[in-house]
């Protein structure tokens, strides 16, 4: 794996607390001397945040599929009527 990918991997392991105490020391020393590595770490944190948002958005889309299915199912007329009657 090329160096830049190794940095990405190490950053992930550092953020997840998966490095040994010795590795943490070495990594933190690298962070001090390498401002790009430090900047990249901040942006990598943002990646996790954005992926979490994306995941939630996809889950909500799945919920909408279930909604549409339920409200178009002729076997679920009672359920649909029950809901519609609340919003008359």
């Amino acid at each position: 794996m090329r160096t830049s990918l190794n940095d990405v991997r190490q950053t992930e392991q550092y953020l997840n607390g998966q490095l040994t105490p010795e590795e943490v020391l070495v990594f933190e020393a690298k962070l001090l001397t390498n401002p790009i590595l430090k900047l990249n770490m901040l942006f990598q944190k943002k990646v996790y945040l954005i992926v979490a948002m994306y995941h939630r958005k996809k889950l909500k889309e799945e919920a909408e599929v279930v909604h549409q299915r339920l409200f178009n199912d002729t076997n679920k007329k009672d359920f649909q009527q029950n809901i519609y009657s609340l919003f008359k």
Binding site: L5, E12, Q44, V47, I50, V51
Partner: peptide, 19 residues
């Protein structure tokens, strides 16, 4: 696994550029 780290790097760099 390599692809995962490549993706992390790619998305990170897009965010960096945009920011």
């Amino acid at each position: 696994t390599v692809q995962k780290y490549k993706c992390l790097e790619k998305i990170r760099d897009i965010i960096k550029q945009k920011s």
